[in-house]
Design a protein around this nucleic acid. Structure first.
Length: 457
RNA sequence: UCCGCAGUAGCUCAAUGGUGGAGCAUCCGGCUGUUAACCGGAGGGUUACAGGUUCGAGUCCUGUCUGCGGAGCCA
């Protein structure tokens, strides 16, 4: 009996150790990123052949493992004939396993080098289309699935990921609850943009969401502070460096908040996410050759000007701007160029803004709205407002905009049962990534961009 | 949707209306420290498509398609 019991515990202990080792395997695996901890050691790495150079009896294979790049050196005399021949034969992006001794080598890119003895091929590649030379944007976009392997694209993806994490951390650490809105919706949220349409069984048409905001408002009434973070869709035929048909948006919504609270939140949020990415993705920003001087300035307080003051700035810069219009891309650039950090423009004419925005009690023609314009011509990255919280006023707005009342009954209910002042904003993820990375087009900020003339790969 | 620009080798680009080339990639050869390595050689073309002008069109004209840049719309 005792021996059976002992065996049982032995088995449990054995299994625990096995499972723990197995679980830690991936985490403890040596990668190029943490190579400095393994100088002088004989190690094995797996990855892809990024590039190779040779000089007769010496070959330099640049290995890429997703975390970095490492030059692996093969001398003819010190490796087998087969290995040397293989090193000569395999093409760019072949998947390989290398083994050798890590050493510090100032002549090698990155400062480390592998004195390699072993080379095995997992899968041989030939005629990889993206060579280490220049390519046009059409070719690169056609090969987006491969382009992501290149240094700069990989750096952008790492920055995007860190930005997403910073956004989530900020809200998670400040009492917000993530609440996912539906992507299929029965009607337009704002009643303005053109939406992607699809048949929805016997219920008629459904649309891909252009914003999670209205649902976030319901969330704020339930949970106080919420945020949504997901893909949104616009069928507008916008063909500019700032537009995608599918993009990601984060939208916080706060109960018992007015426009000033909203602006306070936006600037604290922006400071946190930008400074975090600057600190955590310094290397990647260097790869992109991003001058971060202006990004360092993204700290509270951000300048706040009214729409009226913004119009005056335009007029002082010899722009013939009609009061009452919305700003165009070049207008935004001129306004933001007056400041050394993002600028908040608030109190727009209500006509150019969405139906749900609350009017300024001091001037009914103005909406309690705010746009945050990023420097360096990156334009509007945040759009927000205090929401209309009065039932009758909101109903009037819905009618004025010829929106189908039935579709908004639930939204009106939020004003019927314990309405409170509330506000929120939306931040476009891709525009923010483009701004932080200093890119000239948002198509490089998302793994597989969707644009009016492209939905592949 | 509108305005502008472009389409030539796998890629990036040349070519006065008169025999379509180069660099990279690929293949062959050389080189024991390369840095988008270099050096020598080879193969590689329905000049986007359709029509027109001309003795002759990659080049000029018309139309179509595709892409790029911008505007509008928007984040």
């Amino acid at each position: 009996m005792l021996s059976i019991l002992c065996f049982y515990f032995d088995l449990r202990l054995y299994l625990t150790i096995k499972i723990r080792n197995y679980g830690n395997h991936l985490m403890q695996k040596i990668s190029i990123r943490n190579l400095s901890e393994h100088i002088g050691e004989e190690i094995t790495l797996q990855g892809w052949l990024f590039n190779k150079r040779s000089s007769g009896k010496i070959k330099f294979l640049i290995l890429r493992d997703g975390t970095g790049y490492l030059q692996c050196v093969y001398f003819k005399g010190s490796v087998s004939e087969e290995v040397f021949e293989l090193a000569d034969r395999i093409g760019q992006e072949s998947s390989i396993t290398v083994r050798g001794k890590v050493k510090v080598e100032p002549r090698a890119p990155g400062g480390y080098e592998l004195d390699a003895t072993v080379l095995t091929v997992i899968s041989e590649a030939h005629d990889y289309p993206i060579t280490p030379k220049e390519h046009g944007i059409e070719f690169l976009m056609d090969h987006r699935h491969l382009w992501l392997r290149s240094t700069k694209q990989a750096a952008i993806m790492r920055i995007r990921h860190r930005l997403i994490k910073a956004i989530r951390d900020f809200f998670d650490n400040n009492g917000f609850t993530l609440m996912d809105p539906p992507i299929l919706t029965p009607a337009a949220c704002e009643g303005t943009s053109t939406l992607f349409e699809t048949e929805y069984f016997d219920l008629g048409k459904a649309y891909l969401t252009q914003s999670g905001q209205l649902y976030a408002e319901a969330g704020a009434m339930a949970l106080g502070k919420v945020y949504t973070f997901g893909p949104t869709f616009r069928a507008e035929k916008s063909k500019t460096r700032r537009h995608l048909t599918e993009f990601w948006m984060v939208e916080p919504e706060v109960a018992f908040a007015n426009l000033n609270d909203d602006m306070d939140l936006a600037e604290e949020f922006l400071e946190y996410i930008v400074q975090t990415v600057l600190k955590e993705r310094e290397e990647e920003l260097k790869v992109l050759e991003r001058d971060t001087t202006l990004l360092q300035n993204v700290k509270r307080p951000l300048p706040r000007i009214t729409y009226k003051e913004a119009v005056e700035i335009l007029r002082k810069n010899d722009i013939d701007f009609q009061y009452g219009n919305d700003f165009g891309g070049t207008d935004e650039t001129i306004i933001s160029n007056q400041f050394d950090r993002p600028v908040m423009v608030h109190r727009y004419p209500a006509e150019v803004k969405a139906f749900y925005m609350k009017r300024d009690p001091e001037n009914e023609k103005l909406a309690l709205a705010v746009d945050v314009l990023a420097p360096e011509g990156y334009g509007e990255i945040i759009g927000g407002s205090q929401r209309e919280d009065d039932y009758n006023t909101l109903l009037k707005r819905i009618e004025e905009h010829n929106l189908p009342r039935e579709a908004f009954e639930w939204y009106l209910d939020l004003r019927k049962y314990g309405s409170v002042p509330h506000a929120g904003f939306g931040l476009g993820l891709e525009r923010t990534v483009g701004w932080i990375c200093g890119l000239d087009h948002v198509r490089e900020t998302i793994p597989f961009p969707r644009m009016i003339y492209r939905n592949t790969p």
